[in-house]
Design a protein around this nucleic acid. Structure first.
Length: 495
RNA sequence: CGCGGGGUAGAGCAACGGUAGCUCGCAAGGCUCAUAACCUUGAGGUAGUGGGUUCGACUCCCGCCCCCGCAACCA
């Protein structure tokens, strides 16, 4: 039984929670719950990223003071974690001056001491369309290839981080999977990016241009760049600043879960910062894709943005979690539509899981079984194999395949009921056979509930409750079931 | 020469150098314990396209066509 430290990325609070963040939370939560069930000491962190220019702009647009704006938006993200029944142990906010800032300052000083921070005049080509600096190699005929405009030359004084110094080391760490990036495609992507040449990165902005952030230690005329601030969240709340107990215990992270858009920051800048500060590196980086809406990128302009709260409110947290983890491929882009959602809901949750629980419990209520029976060997075998597959898939973070494994077991139970026809057995007075069939089915249901726990915790609890067994021991309930049939788990949705 | 992902049954997807599978939908049959549910069977694919490698390719290689991301809102 080891420790397991898992994080999501921290959500940028310039807008309200997005269904994509719900996906990331759900993925992380499954791993956290699964590891806890296995007896690991789990620490699961999520939170919000609240500094930077875009936040200031968003607050202005909303007509609110920045502090008030981020408080309100961050509260929404916290609310989403609650509504989705996420089991995070803590919630980090980068505006937390007590818990987050000291770690950022400590990290900054470490980098300075190592000689990896230097001040330089930054002369850059600034594309107004991008609102970002561009490399000259990215230009075509001296113009931005996307905006067809000549970028402005802007000169400002910045602190820089010597990322280039770590390029070779990073290449090797990533290639040898000392730091493992999943899926492999993302690993290749970052390796070819490194091969093209890694430059030092600007690590501060003049505070006259941007003051919403953490001041550079000993130089308040500069504000720490939002990414070098945000990445430290993974260690700040563990108590990096004071070398706290949790930091000692949980760092390095076992998995960082992120979206494909922030791969470079994690695989390059974050690792380089840790190398520079002499800290252990996280072990795995899991990169998920994006959710499209009806095959298109979600955009406010198109009006096809899916609101996670609406989904949860309409179908419940467990159904929402189920869809995200089953229908969206873990490391690729996936699609969300309400049509697909309802199709999945009816087929898998109502007709599949819900109906099976209902039919088995109705049968089981017909007779209180004798206690001395044991589960049949062939059914035992099927259950064992399901566990095997399930563990294998979860270890590889193949959430959809782990769920598929559970649903195969559900399918097996449906076939088993049809084949055994327990109602016939009763009519024919074959009580022993009936009891045996029911024990096999009830035990299978109990296992299904266990397998489901990391994915759909509330549903798992409901099944245990209806079976009348304790959730504490995973196996060998013998025949201690005390059936208490309740309302349908997932009522069928009207077409 | 910008980068990346993808084109497989009506829809959504999977696998694999050697009989092309799954889910939904559709059709027929069965069952009645169950949420008009469940079980069985069936129809339906010359695998975007043109070449090449191979005893053999959907699977490897090359060309071409088409779709989707890579400015902003936004993860």
């Amino acid at each position: 039984m080891g420790k397991f430290y898992i994080t999501t990325s921290i959500a940028y609070v310039n807008a309200l929670p997005h269904i994509g963040y719900a996906l990331e939370l759900a993925q992380a939560d499954v791993l956290a719950r699964w590891k806890r069930l296995k007896g690991d000491d789990v620490f699961f962190l999520t939170g919000t990223d609240e500094h930077g220019r875009k936040i200031v702009e968003a607050a202005e647009k909303a007509g609110k003071p920045v502090g008030e704006f981020v408080d309100e938006t961050a509260a929404k993200f916290k609310e989403l974690a609650g509504a989705l029944n996420i089991s995070n142990n803590d919630f980090v906010r980068t505006t937390d001056q007590k818990r987050h800032w000291p770690a950022v300052e400590k990290m900054w000083r470490k980098l300075v001491n190592k000689g990896d921070i230097y001040k330089a005049n930054y002369k850059g080509l600034y594309c107004v369309g991008h609102e970002a600096f561009m490399k000259s190699s990215e230009l075509k005929d001296g113009k931005c290839p996307i905006h067809f405009k000549e970028p402005e030359t802007i000169e400002e004084e910045n602190y820089f981080f010597r990322l280039s110094r770590y390029a070779n080391e990073l290449e090797s760490i990533i290639r040898t999977e000392e730091f493992k990036i999943v899926p492999a495609g993302r690993k290749n992507e970052i390796l070819s990016f490194i091969a093209e040449g890694v430059e030092d990165v600007s690590f501060s902005r003049p505070s006259k241009d941007l003051s919403w952030g953490i001041p550079v230690p000993d130089d308040p005329t500069h504000t720490i760049y939002v990414w070098s601030d945000a990445l430290v969240n993974y260690i700040s709340l563990l108590g990096y600043a004071e070398d706290g107990e949790n930091f000692q215990k949980y760092w390095p992270a076992d998995v960082h879960i992120i979206g494909k858009d922030i791969l470079r920051f994690h695989a390059l800048i974050w690792l380089a910062m840790l190398l520079s500060a002499g800290l252990p590196l996280p072990k795995n980086l899991f990169v998920h894709g994006f959710i499209t809406s009806g095959g298109q990128k979600m955009s406010k302009t198109l009006g096809n943005v899916i609101d996670p709260f609406e989904v949860i409110k309409k179908y419940g947290a467990d159904a929402a979690r189920y869809y995200l983890l089953r229908e969206i491929p873990p490391t690729e882009d996936g699609d969300f539509t309400f049509e697909k959602f309802e199709e999945r809901y009816n087929a898998d949750l109502a007709n599949g899981l819900g109906n099976l629980v209902a039919r088995v419990l109705t049968l089981a209520e017909k007779r209180t079984a004798k206690k001395e029976l044991k589960i049949s060997a062939d059914v035992r075998e099927i259950i064992d194999r399901a566990w095997e597959n399930y563990e294998k898939h979860l270890a590889e973070m193949k959430f959809n395949e782990a769920l598929e494994t559970i649903w195969r077991l559900i399918g097996f139970c449906d076939e088993y009921v049809d084949k055994e026809k327990p109602w016939e057995l009763l009519k024919q007075g074959k009580e022993k056979e009936f009891d045996q069939a029911m024990l096999n089915l009830l035990t299978s249901l109990a296992h299904i509930a266990w397998l489901l726990e990391p994915f759909m915790p509330k549903t798992a609890d409901k099944i245990f409750e209806q079976l009348g067994i304790e959730k504490t021991a995973k196996d060998e309930w013998d025949n201690k079931f005390a059936i208490k049939k309740q309302a349908s788990l997932f009522p069928r949705l009207p077409k």
